[in-house]
Amino acid sequence: MKSYYLLAIIPFIGMLGGAVFVNKVTPYVLGLPFLLFWILLWIILSSATMGIIYKLDTVNKGGNS
């Protein structure tokens, strides 16, 4: 297994592991309760992480075979 595949674990830890610690309602960010903002942030960061993995993966560098 390639080491950059381990980047896929980061969104899992951030969304599920971090939700335990940020489960608060009172601080609002962009008009959202902090937990909802946290989940939306990790959805965006998950897409960015998967894009990085896609760019680093050598299988995707092939031609139109």
Rank of each mutant, 00 (worst) to 15 (best):
G51A: 14
F34Y: 15
Y4N: 10
S47K: 07
G51H: 07
G62Q: 12
G17E: 09
N23H: 08
I10W: 03
L32Q: 14
L36T: 03
F21K: 05
G14Q: 04
W38F: 11
K2W: 13
T49I: 07
W42D: 05
I10N: 02
Y54I: 15
G14K: 04
P33S: 07
I9C: 03
A19L: 15
N64G: 05
P33I: 01
A48W: 08
L32Y: 11
S46D: 04
V59N: 13
G62I: 15
M1A: 14
L7H: 02
G18I: 13
D57N: 15
S3N: 10
S46R: 01
W42T: 13
L30P: 01
G31S: 10
M15N: 05
L36R: 11
M15G: 09
S65C: 09
T58Y: 07
W42Y: 10
K55T: 14
F12Y: 04
L35W: 14
I44P: 00
I9T: 03
L30S: 01
G14E: 07
L40A: 01
L45I: 09
I13V: 15
L56A: 13
V25H: 07
W38K: 05
L45A: 11
L16A: 06
P27H: 09
G62N: 07
S3W: 12
M50R: 03
W38G: 01
N23S: 06
L36E: 11
M1C: 09
I39V: 15
L16P: 00
G14R: 04
L30K: 06
G62D: 11
A19N: 12
I44S: 02
D57P: 07
K61L: 08
Y5N: 11
L40P: 01
V59C: 05
Y4R: 06
G62S: 11
G17V: 14
G17A: 06
G31A: 07
M15R: 10
V25I: 07
D57G: 06
L32C: 04
W38R: 03
V29N: 01
V25E: 06
Y4M: 03
S3G: 02
V22H: 07
S3V: 13
S65T: 05
A8T: 02
F12P: 00
Y54N: 13
K24M: 06
L41F: 14
L32V: 05
G63W: 00
S46I: 03
L35Y: 12
G62K: 14
V20L: 10
A8Y: 01
A19Y: 10
Y28C: 00
A19H: 11
I39G: 00
G62C: 02
P33V: 02
N60M: 06
S46P: 00
I39N: 08
L36P: 01
Y5A: 04
L32A: 06
F21Y: 11
V22S: 01
I13Y: 02
T26Q: 11
N64Y: 05
V29Q: 00
A8N: 02
G51R: 13
G51N: 10
K24W: 07
L36M: 11
M50T: 15
S3R: 08
L56Y: 11
Y28I: 05
Y28R: 08
L16D: 03
M50C: 03
M50L: 12
W38E: 07
N23Q: 06
M1W: 12
T26N: 11
